[in-house]
Protein backbone atom coordinates (compact mmCIF):
# COMPACT_ATOMS: atom_id res chain seq x y z
CA UNK A 1 0.00 0.00 0.00
CA UNK A 2 1.08 3.58 -0.55
CA UNK A 3 -0.20 7.07 0.03
CA UNK A 4 -2.60 8.46 -2.53
CA UNK A 5 -0.44 11.11 -4.29
CA UNK A 6 -3.35 13.52 -4.81
CA UNK A 7 -4.65 13.30 -1.24
CA UNK A 8 -1.12 13.55 0.09
CA UNK A 9 -0.47 16.74 -1.88
CA UNK A 10 -3.85 18.11 -0.85
CA UNK A 11 -3.23 17.43 2.84
CA UNK A 12 0.31 18.81 2.79
CA UNK A 13 -0.64 21.82 0.65
CA UNK A 14 -3.56 22.70 2.92
CA UNK A 15 -1.41 22.29 6.02
CA UNK A 16 1.39 24.44 4.64
CA UNK A 17 -1.03 27.15 3.51
CA UNK A 18 -2.59 27.31 6.97
CA UNK A 19 0.83 27.54 8.58
CA UNK A 20 2.02 30.25 6.19
CA UNK A 21 -1.09 32.38 6.66
CA UNK A 22 -1.56 31.76 10.36
CA UNK A 23 -0.23 35.09 11.71
CA UNK A 24 -2.48 36.94 9.26
CA UNK A 25 -5.46 34.77 10.21
CA UNK A 26 -4.75 35.26 13.91
CA UNK A 27 -4.58 39.01 13.37
CA UNK A 28 -7.84 38.91 11.38
CA UNK A 29 -9.50 36.86 14.12
CA UNK A 30 -8.13 39.22 16.76
CA UNK A 31 -6.58 36.33 18.66
CA UNK A 32 -2.77 36.75 18.84
CA UNK A 33 -2.61 33.78 21.19
CA UNK A 34 -3.03 31.56 18.13
CA UNK A 35 0.47 32.61 17.03
CA UNK A 36 1.93 31.53 20.36
CA UNK A 37 0.02 28.23 20.26
CA UNK A 38 1.09 27.41 16.72
CA UNK A 39 4.70 28.41 17.43
CA UNK A 40 4.60 25.82 20.18
CA UNK A 41 3.11 23.28 17.77
CA UNK A 42 5.88 23.93 15.24
CA UNK A 43 8.58 23.54 17.87
CA UNK A 44 7.16 20.28 19.20
CA UNK A 45 6.68 19.09 15.63
CA UNK A 46 10.40 19.64 15.09
CA UNK A 47 11.22 17.62 18.21
CA UNK A 48 8.80 14.86 17.16
CA UNK A 49 10.17 14.69 13.60
CA UNK A 50 13.68 14.31 14.99
CA UNK A 51 12.45 11.54 17.30
CA UNK A 52 10.71 9.81 14.40
CA UNK A 53 14.05 9.62 12.58
CA UNK A 54 15.27 7.15 15.19
CA UNK A 55 11.97 5.49 16.19
CA UNK A 56 10.12 5.35 12.89
CA UNK A 57 13.00 4.87 10.49
CA UNK A 58 15.70 3.40 12.68
CA UNK A 59 13.63 1.25 15.06
CA UNK A 60 15.45 2.77 18.05
CA UNK A 61 12.71 3.42 20.61
CA UNK A 62 14.22 6.08 22.83
CA UNK A 63 12.58 7.18 26.05
CA UNK A 64 15.23 9.85 26.53
CA UNK A 65 14.73 12.23 23.64
CA UNK A 66 13.61 15.03 25.94
CA UNK A 67 17.17 15.10 27.27
CA UNK A 68 18.37 16.63 23.99
CA UNK A 69 15.50 19.11 23.98
CA UNK A 70 16.47 20.06 27.53
CA UNK A 71 20.17 20.37 26.68
CA UNK A 72 19.39 22.76 23.81
CA UNK A 73 17.14 24.79 26.09
CA UNK A 74 19.66 24.87 28.94
CA UNK A 75 22.44 26.11 26.65
CA UNK A 76 20.22 29.09 25.79
CA UNK A 77 19.24 29.53 29.43
CA UNK A 78 22.76 29.33 30.87
CA UNK A 79 24.22 31.70 28.28
CA UNK A 80 21.36 34.14 28.84
CA UNK A 81 21.94 33.94 32.60
CA UNK A 82 25.61 34.94 32.20
CA UNK A 83 24.80 37.72 29.75
CA UNK A 84 22.29 39.17 32.18
CA UNK A 85 24.58 38.59 35.15
CA UNK A 86 27.57 40.09 33.35
CA UNK A 87 29.69 37.19 34.56
CA UNK A 88 32.05 35.07 32.55
CA UNK A 89 30.80 31.78 31.14
CA UNK A 90 34.25 30.28 31.71
CA UNK A 91 37.16 31.67 33.70
CA UNK A 92 39.45 28.64 33.40
CA UNK A 93 41.42 27.45 31.44
CA UNK A 94 40.58 30.53 29.41
CA UNK A 95 38.14 33.35 29.82
CA UNK A 96 34.98 33.03 27.78
CA UNK A 97 32.26 35.65 27.62
CA UNK A 98 28.67 34.50 27.19
CA UNK A 99 26.58 35.70 24.28
CA UNK A 100 22.93 35.97 23.41
CA UNK A 101 23.52 36.22 19.65
CA UNK A 102 21.38 33.54 18.02
CA UNK A 103 24.00 32.93 15.32
CA UNK A 104 26.40 31.82 18.05
CA UNK A 105 24.07 30.36 20.67
CA UNK A 106 21.86 28.26 18.42
CA UNK A 107 24.62 26.39 16.56
CA UNK A 108 26.44 25.87 19.88
CA UNK A 109 23.28 24.42 21.45
CA UNK A 110 22.65 22.14 18.48
CA UNK A 111 26.28 21.00 18.48
CA UNK A 112 26.31 20.27 22.22
CA UNK A 113 23.03 18.32 21.90
CA UNK A 114 24.49 16.32 19.02
CA UNK A 115 27.68 15.59 20.97
CA UNK A 116 25.65 14.46 23.99
CA UNK A 117 23.66 12.23 21.63
CA UNK A 118 26.92 10.71 20.38
CA UNK A 119 27.94 10.07 23.97
CA UNK A 120 24.61 8.58 25.02
CA UNK A 121 24.14 6.74 21.74
CA UNK A 122 27.60 5.18 21.80
CA UNK A 123 26.61 3.35 24.99
CA UNK A 124 22.88 2.85 24.38
CA UNK A 125 23.24 1.48 20.85
CA UNK A 126 25.25 -1.46 22.12
CA UNK A 127 21.91 -2.71 23.42
CA UNK A 128 18.56 -3.15 21.73
CA UNK A 129 14.87 -3.59 22.51
CA UNK A 130 13.80 -3.09 26.10
CA UNK A 131 17.38 -2.55 27.28
CA UNK A 132 17.78 0.30 24.80
CA UNK A 133 14.57 1.91 26.06
CA UNK A 134 15.70 1.62 29.66
CA UNK A 135 19.23 2.90 29.08
CA UNK A 136 18.04 5.97 27.18
CA UNK A 137 15.54 6.58 29.97
CA UNK A 138 18.34 6.25 32.54
CA UNK A 139 20.57 8.75 30.74
CA UNK A 140 17.72 11.23 30.42
CA UNK A 141 16.87 10.94 34.11
CA UNK A 142 20.53 11.41 35.02
CA UNK A 143 20.55 14.65 33.07
CA UNK A 144 17.21 15.64 34.65
CA UNK A 145 18.67 15.27 38.13
CA UNK A 146 21.83 17.07 37.01
CA UNK A 147 19.65 20.01 35.95
CA UNK A 148 17.81 19.89 39.29
CA UNK A 149 21.14 20.00 41.11
CA UNK A 150 22.39 23.08 39.23
CA UNK A 151 21.61 25.55 42.00
CA UNK A 152 23.63 28.31 40.35
CA UNK A 153 21.18 28.06 37.45
CA UNK A 154 18.00 27.92 39.51
CA UNK A 155 17.99 24.21 40.36
CA UNK A 156 14.45 22.89 40.46
CA UNK A 157 13.05 26.38 39.78
CA UNK A 158 14.83 26.74 36.46
CA UNK A 159 16.20 29.84 34.76
CA UNK A 160 14.25 32.87 33.63
CA UNK A 161 15.46 34.33 30.36
CA UNK A 162 15.32 38.10 30.25
CA UNK A 163 15.03 38.40 26.52
CA UNK A 164 15.02 36.19 23.47
CA UNK A 165 18.23 35.71 21.50
CA UNK A 166 19.24 38.36 19.01
CA UNK A 167 19.14 37.59 15.30
CA UNK A 168 20.27 40.10 12.62
CA UNK A 169 17.40 41.65 10.64
CA UNK A 170 14.76 39.70 12.59
CA UNK A 171 13.20 40.80 15.83
CA UNK A 172 12.64 37.56 17.73
CA UNK A 173 10.73 39.37 20.46
CA UNK A 174 7.98 39.88 17.91
CA UNK A 175 5.77 36.78 18.10
CA UNK A 176 4.98 36.74 14.38
CA UNK A 177 8.67 36.93 13.44
CA UNK A 178 9.47 34.22 15.96
CA UNK A 179 6.65 32.10 14.53
CA UNK A 180 8.12 32.31 11.03
CA UNK A 181 11.59 31.45 12.35
CA UNK A 182 10.08 28.33 13.94
CA UNK A 183 8.35 27.49 10.66
CA UNK A 184 11.60 27.90 8.70
CA UNK A 185 13.46 25.70 11.21
CA UNK A 186 10.80 22.99 10.88
CA UNK A 187 10.70 23.13 7.07
CA UNK A 188 14.49 23.05 6.79
CA UNK A 189 14.68 20.10 9.20
CA UNK A 190 11.93 18.29 7.26
CA UNK A 191 13.80 18.87 4.00
CA UNK A 192 17.08 17.62 5.46
CA UNK A 193 15.28 14.62 6.99
CA UNK A 194 13.73 13.83 3.61
CA UNK A 195 17.15 13.94 1.97
CA UNK A 196 18.56 11.80 4.73
CA UNK A 197 15.83 9.15 4.77
CA UNK A 198 15.94 8.61 1.01
CA UNK A 199 19.72 8.71 0.71
CA UNK A 200 21.93 5.62 0.82
CA UNK A 201 22.52 6.42 4.50
CA UNK A 202 18.77 6.40 5.12
CA UNK A 203 18.33 3.12 3.24
CA UNK A 204 20.95 1.51 5.45
CA UNK A 205 19.26 2.77 8.62
CA UNK A 206 15.81 1.67 7.39
CA UNK A 207 17.15 -1.70 6.30
CA UNK A 208 18.93 -2.21 9.62
CA UNK A 209 15.62 -1.58 11.38
CA UNK A 210 14.26 -4.69 9.67
CA UNK A 211 17.36 -6.88 9.81
CA UNK A 212 20.59 -5.52 11.20
CA UNK A 213 22.59 -8.70 10.64
CA UNK A 214 21.54 -8.77 6.98
CA UNK A 215 22.65 -5.19 6.52
CA UNK A 216 26.00 -5.99 8.10
CA UNK A 217 26.48 -8.88 5.71
CA UNK A 218 26.07 -6.39 2.86
CA UNK A 219 29.13 -4.54 4.18
CA UNK A 220 27.63 -1.89 6.44
CA UNK A 221 28.87 -1.24 10.00
CA UNK A 222 25.32 -0.60 11.21
CA UNK A 223 26.35 0.59 14.67
CA UNK A 224 28.07 3.64 13.15
CA UNK A 225 25.13 4.40 10.90
CA UNK A 226 22.69 4.19 13.80
CA UNK A 227 24.94 6.35 15.95
CA UNK A 228 25.08 9.08 13.30
CA UNK A 229 21.29 8.89 12.95
CA UNK A 230 20.90 9.09 16.73
CA UNK A 231 23.13 12.17 16.91
CA UNK A 232 21.26 13.89 14.06
CA UNK A 233 18.03 13.27 15.96
CA UNK A 234 19.71 14.67 19.08
CA UNK A 235 20.70 17.77 17.14
CA UNK A 236 17.07 18.18 16.00
CA UNK A 237 15.90 17.81 19.58
CA UNK A 238 18.46 20.41 20.65
CA UNK A 239 17.19 22.89 18.08
CA UNK A 240 13.64 22.35 19.36
CA UNK A 241 14.96 23.03 22.87
CA UNK A 242 16.56 26.29 21.69
CA UNK A 243 13.22 27.43 20.30
CA UNK A 244 11.27 26.34 23.40
CA UNK A 245 13.64 28.31 25.63
CA UNK A 246 13.25 31.38 23.44
CA UNK A 247 9.50 31.08 23.25
CA UNK A 248 8.88 30.51 26.95
CA UNK A 249 11.77 32.75 28.04
CA UNK A 250 12.17 30.19 30.75
CA UNK A 251 13.99 26.88 31.15
CA UNK A 252 13.37 24.27 33.83
CA UNK A 253 14.43 20.66 34.50
CA UNK A 254 10.91 19.53 33.56
CA UNK A 255 11.98 19.80 29.93
CA UNK A 256 14.32 16.85 30.43
CA UNK A 257 11.87 14.65 32.34
CA UNK A 258 11.02 11.25 30.90
CA UNK A 259 7.31 12.14 30.76
CA UNK A 260 8.27 14.80 28.23
CA UNK A 261 9.95 12.08 26.15
CA UNK A 262 6.72 10.09 26.47
CA UNK A 263 4.72 13.02 25.09
CA UNK A 264 7.03 13.17 22.07
CA UNK A 265 6.50 9.44 21.46
CA UNK A 266 2.72 9.98 21.65
CA UNK A 267 3.03 12.73 19.03
CA UNK A 268 4.96 10.39 16.73
CA UNK A 269 2.44 7.56 17.22
CA UNK A 270 -0.58 9.83 16.78
CA UNK A 271 0.74 11.46 13.64
CA UNK A 272 2.19 8.38 11.98
CA UNK A 273 5.40 6.63 12.90
CA UNK A 274 7.86 6.19 10.05
CA UNK A 275 6.40 9.05 8.01
CA UNK A 276 8.15 12.37 7.64
CA UNK A 277 5.12 14.58 8.07
CA UNK A 278 3.19 12.40 10.51
CA UNK A 279 4.88 13.78 13.64
CA UNK A 280 3.90 17.32 12.57
CA UNK A 281 0.25 16.25 12.51
CA UNK A 282 0.75 14.35 15.76
CA UNK A 283 2.18 17.39 17.52
CA UNK A 284 -0.66 19.55 16.22
CA UNK A 285 -3.30 17.01 17.28
CA UNK A 286 -1.92 16.54 20.79
CA UNK A 287 -1.33 20.21 21.55
CA UNK A 288 -4.66 21.32 20.08
CA UNK A 289 -6.48 18.61 22.05
CA UNK A 290 -4.70 19.77 25.19
CA UNK A 291 -5.61 23.38 24.46
CA UNK A 292 -9.27 22.69 23.71
CA UNK A 293 -10.01 20.02 26.30
CA UNK A 294 -8.09 21.61 29.16
CA UNK A 295 -10.50 24.54 28.93
CA UNK A 296 -13.22 22.14 30.12
CA UNK A 297 -11.36 19.78 32.43
CA UNK A 298 -7.92 19.46 33.95
CA UNK A 299 -8.24 15.70 33.35
CA UNK A 300 -8.08 16.15 29.58
CA UNK A 301 -5.73 13.18 29.27
CA UNK A 302 -8.72 10.94 30.03
CA UNK A 303 -9.88 11.74 26.50
CA UNK A 304 -6.44 11.42 24.98
CA UNK A 305 -6.06 7.76 26.02
CA UNK A 306 -9.08 6.41 24.12
CA UNK A 307 -8.25 8.65 21.15
CA UNK A 308 -4.72 7.25 21.01
CA UNK A 309 -6.08 3.69 21.20
CA UNK A 310 -8.48 4.39 18.33
CA UNK A 311 -5.72 5.87 16.19
CA UNK A 312 -3.35 2.98 16.87
CA UNK A 313 -6.09 0.41 16.17
CA UNK A 314 -7.71 1.92 13.11
CA UNK A 315 -5.14 4.24 11.53
CA UNK A 316 -2.03 2.17 11.04
CA UNK A 317 -0.06 5.14 9.77
CA UNK A 318 -1.55 7.58 12.26
CA UNK A 319 -3.50 10.71 11.51
CA UNK A 320 -1.30 11.58 8.53
CA UNK A 321 -1.71 8.12 7.02
CA UNK A 322 -5.46 8.33 7.51
CA UNK A 323 -5.72 11.79 5.98
CA UNK A 324 -3.44 10.83 3.09
CA UNK A 325 -5.47 7.79 2.24
CA UNK A 326 -3.45 4.76 3.34
CA UNK A 327 -0.72 3.07 5.21
CA UNK A 328 2.26 3.22 2.95
CA UNK A 329 5.74 2.26 4.00
CA UNK A 330 7.01 5.81 4.14
CA UNK A 331 6.47 9.30 2.80
Amino acid sequence: MSFSPFRRRLVLGTGLTILLLLPAMASFAGDPYLITLFSRILIYALAAVSLDLIIGYGGMVSLGHAAFVGIGAYVVGILSFHVQDGSLLLSWPFELQASDAALLVWPAAVLISALMAVLIGSVSLRTSGLQFIMITLAFAQMLFYLAVSLEAYGGDDGISIWSRNRLPLVDLSDDSSFYYICLVCLLVFLYLSHRLVFSRFGRVVRGAKQNELRMQSLGFPTYRYKLVCFSIAGAGGGLAGVLIANQNEFVSPGLLHWTHSGELIVMVLLGGMGTLFGPVFGAAALLLMEELLSAYTEHWMVFLGPFLILVVLFAKRGIYGWLSGAGGNHA
Binding site: R206, G207, K209, Q210, N211, M215, N329
Partner: peptide
Protein backbone atom coordinates in the same frame (compact mmCIF):
# COMPACT_ATOMS: atom_id res chain seq x y z
CA UNK B 1 15.49 -14.55 1.55
CA UNK B 2 15.70 -11.79 4.13
CA UNK B 3 15.10 -8.95 1.74
CA UNK B 4 14.25 -5.61 3.34
CA UNK B 5 10.44 -5.44 3.23
CA UNK B 6 10.30 -1.72 4.04
CA UNK B 7 12.49 -0.75 1.08
CA UNK B 8 11.40 -0.78 -2.55
CA UNK B 9 12.97 -3.27 -4.94
CA UNK B 10 15.07 -0.43 -6.37
CA UNK B 11 16.18 0.64 -2.89
CA UNK B 12 17.01 -2.96 -1.96
CA UNK B 13 19.41 -2.99 -4.90
CA UNK B 14 20.77 0.53 -4.50
CA UNK B 15 21.54 0.13 -0.83
CA UNK B 16 23.86 -2.76 -1.63
Amino acid sequence: RRIFPNLTLRENLLVA
